[in-house]
Design a protein around this nucleic acid. Structure first.
Lengths: 227, 227
DNA sequence: GTTGGGGTGTTAATTTATTAGCAATTCAAT
DNA sequence: ATTGAATTGCTAATAAATTAACACCCCAAC
């Protein structure tokens, strides 16, 4: 389980993928999905570049971390590459997700997610308020928190999206961890703590907005893309 | 306005702040806010480290980009540093923001924002649906899109939060740009394009979730913090 | 005052990430 | 077959970001 800090290359499979690369993979995936949907068979790194905003060199380099998928002089077979990316990211089968908090935010996220994403599957929402209990939001049932461990076990839930008010978010995090969830996606403007082994991503709107404002207040010409 | 790509250090004021630093500043700001609220007068980089998850060295280094704010052997005066950060980020006065789309997501963001963030001020929401028109969501009025240019001018609106369905989001982006907004925060799972000079941040839940799943599927012990 | 513990500010070393460049390979055209 | 245009996959060079190290300053205690 625990591995010491200073072992640079002890992953036998492949040599330690940079974080920045991982963040770009889903973007490639979605782009390829669109291409496949439009019956594109072959795509070059340049075309991917135009569609993703990353440079062609970077795309080729990123893919190079995982193997060789293209054919020189031609490009990449879109569908094949898409499937490789699915395997790389770990989405060969739909990832089961729960949403905690069925208020406005939870509802909005459910809709976005269920509608748009073929790779994750929201299996249930949880809330404490009796008002929403038992309701269905786009096919997803709102359950009492007491049933969380059972649901997590049954569907092998990997990730939880926390859409609860700041006051309750740490309690919610503790709850989902206790239920066996490994990945937490927190939308409350409070940083959630979790034990080692649990991945927490704090998506704080106001934090990100403020860093954007920094750029906006200095009028220098930055790129319009991907600040 | 336009400045060529390859001019490394032509900012006369100070020597080109790394992006990664800018992203951390709002975290420091919020942490200091909390400390000040709890009547903490002096705080060390180590204490900030515990509260933010960044290392003490990094915090000191980050601050060092903008000047010297602490006193050796003692630490930083929390309130003074907070005020410096406000100036640095560009939040000396509340930044006017609009929300486009008054559905579940827009409503949720409004609540989060208005409740939680003393630095930005949502001056209006916009929508096309007659149902919500004229309604108020926590003091914020929902207006027709036709009034956007006027509102942007009047309140000197810097940023727009796009909380509309994917189908409409590019149109919404074009609209806010035409109205004079410089910063776009897009929540739809489609990448929005904007002319140079406009800062776009695409906050796509599913993309971020997927990159988290990468880590979850390899069971190696990563940090629990800040993936 | 002088001493010591504590903590910043800053420079240097190291690691991580991006960009560039090009040899190697494919395919289509002739 | 041969040629040439196109495009990958590497390897090398550069840039960005993090970590480490420590000189220097402050404050409190004696």
């Amino acid at each position: 389980m625990s591995k010491n800090k200073k072992l640079p290359g002890n992953d036998p499979d492949h040599k330690r993928i940079p974080r920045s690369v991982i963040r770009r993979l889903p973007v490639y995936l979605r782009t390829l999905d669109n291409l496949v949907k439009n019956d594109v068979e072959v795509v070059t790194s340049m075309e991917l570049s135009e569609r993703t905003g990353f440079t062609a060199e970077q795309i080729r380099k990123d893919l190079g971390h995982f193997g060789t998928f293209g054919t020189r002089g031609t490009g990449y077979h879109a569908e094949a590459l898409r499937n490789e990316l699915l395997k790389i990211i770990g989405l060969y089968e739909k990832t089961a997700v729960i949403v905690v908090g069925a208020g406005h935010l939870g509802t909005a996220l459910l809709r976005y997610n269920v509608n748009r994403n073929p790779y994750t599957n929201v299996v249930a929402a949880f809330d404490t308020s009796p008002d929403v209990m038992g309701q269905r939001i786009l096919d997803v049932e709102v359950l009492p928190v007491s049933r969380m461990p059972e649901v997590v076990r049954k569907h092998n839930v990997k990730a939880a999206i926390l859409a609860v008010p700041s006051e309750n978010v740490q309690a919610a995090a503790d709850q989902v961890v206790k239920s066996g969830v490994e990945v937490i996606f927190n939308f409350a403007p409070i940083w959630v703590q979790a034990p080692p082994g649990v991945f927490v991503h704090n998506a704080d709107l106001s934090i990100e907005l403020q860093s954007l404002i920094y750029y906006a207040t200095r009028e220098e010409a930055f790129r319009s893309k991907g600040v």
